[in-house]
Design a protein around this nucleic acid. Sequence first.
DNA 1: CTATGGCACGGATT
DNA 2: AATCCGTGCCATAG
Length: 469
Amino acid sequence: MFQIPYHTLRPATTAHLAQTMTLLSLTVGQLKQQIDTELSTNPALELVEERRCPTCRRLLPERGVCPVCSCPSSTLIDEPVVFLSPREDFYTGSGSSAERPDEDDFSVEEDNLAAYVLRQIAPELDPQDRRLAAYLLTNLDEDGLLAIPVVEVAKYFHIAPAQVKNVQRIIQRADPLGVGSSSTREALLVQMDVLGDIQFVPPLARRVVEEGMDLLSHRQFAELARYMGVSVRQVQQVVKFIGENLNPFPARSHWGDIRHPVAPNLHVYQQPDIIINFMNDNPKNPLIVEIVLPLSGTLRVSPLFRSAIQQASDEKKEAWKGDMERASLFVKCIQQRNHTLRRLVQRVVSLQRDFIVHGEQYLKPVTRSLISRDLDVHESTISRAVANKTVQLPNRRIIPLANFFDRSLNVRSILRDIIAEESSPLSDSQLVDILAQRGINVARRTVAKYRSMEGILPAHLRQSVVQQT
DNA sequence: CTATGGCACGGATT
DNA sequence: AATCCGTGCCATAG
C-alpha cells in the first residue's frame, strides 16, 4: 500500500498546502475554470498539448479514451486500474454546470435539470424540435417525469402527437435515463431498453413492468405473482433487479431520496468526476477507473518565459519572477491534487469493489478516517477530496462519491430486500430480529428510520392496501 | 396493549 | 468545533 515515498511529494510551504487543499475539493468543472483563469492571467503558465497515457506512458493518438484499456499488459492486472483521463470535450459547453452548488439554492433543480438535458440532446434536434423539447423539459415535475399529457402538448403546438412522442423518446434517452417519461412505468421501460444493450435484463422484468405496474408499485408481490402466473420467488428476483438497476423517478439519485428532495441531488446532474467501468464493458474483466481531467495535455512553466526573463528590464524582472513562482506552484498543486485523488480512488475502489459490481447491499462501512490512515494523510484531506465529487458506476448510474462512505446504505438496502421478500408484513421489531440473524444489530427505532428513508410504508399499511386511488 | 413517529441526547465522524 | 447518526424515552394512534 505504501509503494510511493509520499514525503517527497509533501507540500513544502503553507501556500502550497492551502492551494492544494482547495484544488482537491473542486469538481472537474470547477477545476477547469480555475485552470482557465490561471492560464489566461499568468503568462508564465503554459499548456502543452500532449496526450500521454498516464499508465503506459505512451502518447495517445487522438481524442477519445485512453487505449490502455486494450493494453495487453493491463489485462493481467487484478487490482483495479486507476488512471487520469483527459476529457476536455466534456466541459467545453457553457461553464454553467460548473457553478458552485451552494450558492444558488432556489430555482436550481428544475432549471438545471432541464438545461442539462437540453444541452445533451440539442445537437441531434432541428430547431423546431428543439423548441418542443425545451417546452417539454420545462414541464417536468420534481421527479423528472412529464407533468402534462403528450396530447396536450400536441394540441398546444398544433402538431401530431406522434411527433411529440418522437422528441420525448430522445429526451428519455438522455442522461437521467427515463427523464421526461409520462409515467414511472414508461421510465422503467426506457431504462430497461437502454440497459439491455450493456447488461442482461430478465425478460420477466419487462413483462412485469408492462402489465403489472399497479401491483408492483403497491408492492403487492403475492398478487402480482398470481396475476403474472409465475412464482413469488421469480417476482422477488425481478423486484430485486429493478431495485438495483432502475429508477422510476429519474430525477432522484435513487428512490430512497424522498427525504431530501433537493439538496443531495444538486450534483447528480453534473458530469461525473470519476468513471468506473469494466474493461470493454465485460463484467469478467477488471475494473477501469478514470479520474476525469478537464484538459488534455500537461501544464508547465513555459521554458520560453523562463529564458526571456534574463533579458527583461529590472522592474519587469520582479513581476515576471512572481508570475513564474505562481505558475510553478500552481503546477505542483495540480500534480499534488491528482496524486492524492488517484491514491484515494485506488484504495476506495479496491475496498468497495463488491459494492461497485454487485450493488448497494455489498457496501462496506468504510470511514474517511480509515482511508486517511491508510494513505497517511490528514482526515480533512480525504473529506475535501470526497466532497462534491460524483462517480459513474458501470451500470451508468451517477452517485456522489460520499456514498462510498455511507455507513448505513448497505443495511438500508438489505432491509429493502427483506421487506420485498417476506410476504406477510413485518413489524419493525420483527425486522430487528431478522437483521440480527444476518449479523446486523440495530435498534428498533433505527429500523423505523431506515424504512422512512427508503420510502417504505409502515407494516399495517403495506400489504392490506388493495387497489385504492 | 402494540406499533410508530417526534424530540432530544451522546458519541462518533468530519 | 460542527455535524451526523443511532438510540432511548415518551406521546399518540389504532
